[in-house]
Design a protein around this nucleic acid. Structure first.
Length: 298
DNA sequence: GAGACGTGGGG
DNA sequence: TCCCCAAGTCT
């Protein structure tokens, strides 16, 4: 249970300053929360918002999404990035239909069995969709608790048992309060206690923040991993997928070859997309998003 | 447990 | 321009 000097001001701040996001609305559904959580894995809210609205309009239930060919789902995913998430969401929808009566399940182990649902997303669904107490530990919560409680500017590169226990120790005991606490801490991390330039002057709990009390010391923990992108297979895959998404007929190989000069890397990337189920090779040497179109171009 | 996996905005 | 960053998951 968080001490009241943290709990009360944070909840007051959340009531006054949180964003009105549709997946938090009173009429939200577990399915809508699941879609939002998967889309928000590594993608900012502003970019997710329009895509989420369109998805919920087209596919308001797991069954609606499950009935689509995977390629159509990948196309609607657009430029959110990491399109394998779209495939996993499609598979998760099918699992809901086949195994859970068309509903998003509410038991943690059932949630964890869904493709694309890991520790974080499972806890987020427990908490935000079903109103149950769960330790929600995403990058925002980790950063806020690191600063507030341990005085470190950033959390360690990987979650360990001690960090999870600390998060659990400040989580309210009751379901409703726990869910509210988690979403409020997340929101504080997203809007105020940001990674690069926190607005401590606007923070409702800066008076009791350990990191502030220590004079905001620079991070001195283990090296934090940096991701390369330019020149990687990931960049090539992205370009290939952009061509396939925008095409509404099977794509001739030369159109794919045009996106990258290095043939070895290009073929490796394309093979990877096929292996992942993101691209479908046709008999005539053309490619398309999996299952779309129906007609086999001759 | 390290590395793979997209995309685009901001400093 | 370059680098960091954004509600992680999977292998």
């Amino acid at each position: 249970m968080p001490p009241s000097h943290l709990h009360a001001p944070l909840l007051a701040w959340y009531a006054a300053s949180s964003r009105d996001l549709p997946w938090r609305a009173a009429d939200r559904t577990p399915w809508g929360v699941l879609v939002s959580e998967v889309m928000l894995q590594q993608t900012p809210v502003d970019r997710v918002l329009p895509v989420w609205l369109e998805w919920m309009r087209r596919w308001p239930t797991p069954a609606a999404l499950a009935a689509e060919p995977p390629g159509e789902v990948v196309r609607a995913w657009g430029r959110l990035g990491y399109p394998r998430r779209a495939l996993r969401l499609h598979e998760a929808a099918q699992a809901c239909v086949l195994r859970f009566g068309g509903e998003v399940p509410h038991e943690p182990e059932q949630l964890r069995s869904l493709p694309g649902v890991g520790d974080y997303t499972s806890a987020a669904l427990e908490s935000f969709a079903f109103g149950r107490r769960a330790v929600v530990l995403d990058t925002n919560v980790r950063r806020v608790l690191a600063r507030l409680l341990t005085g470190s500017e950033h959390p360690r590169p990987t979650i360990n048992a001690a960090e999870r226990a600390l998060a659990a120790s400040v989580l309210p005991d009751l379901d409703r309060e726990a869910a509210l606490w988690s979403v409020a801490v997340m929101e504080l991390g997203a809007l105020v206690c940001t990674a690069a330039s926190p607005s401590c002057g606007a923070c409702p709990v800066s008076a009791t923040c350990t990191w502030v009390a220590l004079g905001k010391p620079a991070y001195d923990g283990p090296e934090r991993p940096v991701q390369k992108f330019a020149g990687t297979d990931r960049q090539v895959r992205g370009r290939l997928m952009a061509v396939l998404r925008e095409a509404h007929a099977p794509v001739p190989k030369p159109a794919l070859d045009a996106v990258w000069d290095d043939a070895v890397q290009r073929e490796r990337a394309l093979d990877g997309l096929v292996a992942d189920g993101l691209a479908e090779p046709l008999a005539n040497g053309r490619y398309r998003l999996p299952g779309v179109g129906g007609t086999i171009d001759a």
